[in-house]
Design a binder for these strands. Structure first.
Lengths: 329, 329
DNA sequence: CTGAAAGCGCTAACAC
DNA sequence: GTGTTAGCGCTTTCAG
């Protein structure tokens, strides 16, 4: 099929292209019979408006860029799903970018986003990309951050206060006398881990205790499991906190295989909640972070920003819910 | 920052916009000092070419559309990662679309894709969307299919022959006298399941047997696990084949909890290989389907189609590898 | 209610 | 080497 333009339709319908433009945009100032003629022509020719040309003329693309980390596509997938679902409702297209390693690369992505003239960008990325965001705001892109806040630049965000989650959790265990709490490092989510540490530390300090059980996985280990299998040979804790399900799972397996029954002698929880948490044995206790909602709310916010709707909050906190399963008592 | 165009750069550098165009496109016919002047102006003004305008002028967008199912983002995530990584290399942007339920919706997606004038579309979707693909080819979009073949329309594809995988597997078990093989239904992957059934059926027929153990999960059940917990109360098989890891996992849990030890009294395998397969206990045997590669190869193929490179095959078969773990003997 | 024409930002002949 | 100009396909005043 040859490229058919608005011009061809105009010819076919014996009207001017302005009129065709009016009917495809649903402007009411077209007579009924003219509209019918145009619609017939559109149908006959199989005409579909060229979004690129529209984008150029209108100075907007109705597409927004989504930046996510390359790794851990489980909850990332949920976020994408949520975001895409509401994007669909508001007729926005999504350009997906992943950030692999290397500062250079991230700059290229930013450059790409700028060139592509998307209407806005949603970023779910654990590493706070301060400078890159700065660059983006310079080019007037509305930005919505998922997961972390950056109030300074007046960017909008949707997040869950996992620092508080960790704080409350630690408080509870401390009050029960279970003070040997450890957090497992997660290189891919350093920002999140820092929040966890801050939360637990706060709980400890309020009880005149000092928190220092940070389990660092040496870079040489290919997997947390590999390291933990050794670690638990002579160490154990009351409670282990991990960020991702897979790390908690590694801990459970490593513990059990070292004859440290979970949860009897050691409890383990993770922050992220995926369907696997309920499928593994013992079932994994976790905070239900509403990943899908994070994406959905972020996109909804973006539409508000784009449509200049006045709205209450630029920073929306979504709540978490601790979901006890079998890896805690 | 005000919108800065090629025109502003031209003014600033005291050259014509044609020259600016030449330097941003790296054409060699620009004198060194002019180039330097232009580059300085670009830098000073913070100019970034408008990809939309370029797209309109060049009739190509250097973005390709990727269509994936909404569900099961685990291996989908891998595919996306693979695709994105090679897209990055060749400087293509990715527009991500998910197909939720409803035939109406899928048509809208197609329409969107057509309007967005992407250079090509990669589809990973279990439901063979014959008519929709037809529509796409009508508009001259190069198409690469992931996972299933559709030779009729001369569309390119990358796939794994899971029918043969199932066939070989069944053959092996039959020869050992383990003939009670069952396949678990998977509504979200009907095409894949059909291939599995065909493969097993073939193996059975070649042995003068009839295959009929198809475990259908009634729609009323919220999860396979819920149904299987009951199912295994009075039924068992030699081997259970599932498509996704989560279903196999459900089967393992349901079996074990009904005192059918896996793999001792019943073996279970799944087709899809995710990291969870190695993390659950017992570890889940599976076919290693190279999800990442499926995405990567598909995108590579797309670039070949777009650059008109002559190439050997429009249909690339990737190999699978059976990876025995603990859920099989 | 409809048409003519300018402009969105850039590329690519075609001149000079 | 560099500038001029005609599109690319569409929207949007501004006339009529």
């Amino acid at each position: 099929m040859k490229r058919v333009t608005i011009y061809d339709v105009a010819n076919e319908a014996k009207v001017s292209l302005a009129t065709v433009s009016r009917v495809i945009n649903g402007l009411e100032i077209v007579r009924e019979d003219t509209r019918a003629r145009v619609e017939l022509a559109i149908e006959k020719l199989g005409y579909k408006p060229n979004a690129i040309a529209q984008g150029l003329a209108l100075q907007k693309t109705t597409t927004i860029a989504l930046v996510v980390p390359e790794a851990s596509f489980n909850y990332t997938g949920q976020i994408i799903n949520g975001l895409l679902d509401v994007a669909k409702i508001y007729k926005y297209n999504i350009m997906l970018h992943t950030t692999t390693e290397g500062i250079l690369e991230i700059n290229e992505i930013i450059e790409n986003i700028i060139k592509s003239r998307v209407d806005g960008v949603v970023i779910f990325n654990d590493k706070l990309l301060y400078n890159e965001l700065k660059e983006l705001t310079k080019y007037q892109f509305p930005i919505v951050l998922i997961g972390n806040r950056m109030s300074e630049n007046n960017v909008a965000c949707v997040y869950v206060d996992i620092e508080r989650a960790a704080y409350e959790l630690a408080l509870q265990y401390i009050s029960r006398g279970q003070k040997d709490i450890a957090i497992i490092q997660d290189r891919k989510n350093s920002y999140a881990i820092n929040q966890l540490i801050r939360g637990v530390t706060r709980a400890f300090e309020e009880n005149q205790l000092k928190f220092e059980q940070y389990i660092e996985i040496p870079a040489m280990y290919r997997s947390s499991y590999e390291f933990l299998s050794n670690y638990f040979k002579d160490k154990r804790h009351d409670l282990i906190i991990a960020y991702r399900d897979s790390q908690a799972l590694a801990a459970i397996n490593a513990a059990n295989e070292n004859n440290i029954p979970v949860p009897k002698e050691m409890e383990i929880i993770c922050v992220i909640d995926t369907k696997y948490n309920a499928m593994v044995r013992p079932r994994l206790s976790s905070f239900s972070i509403p990943s899908y909602d994070l994406g959905a709310v972020a996109m909804r916010m973006m539409t508000k920003l784009l449509h200049q709707e006045v709205f209450e909050e630029r920073e929306i906190e979504l709540s978490y819910l601790f979901t006890p399963r079998q890896s805690t008592k």
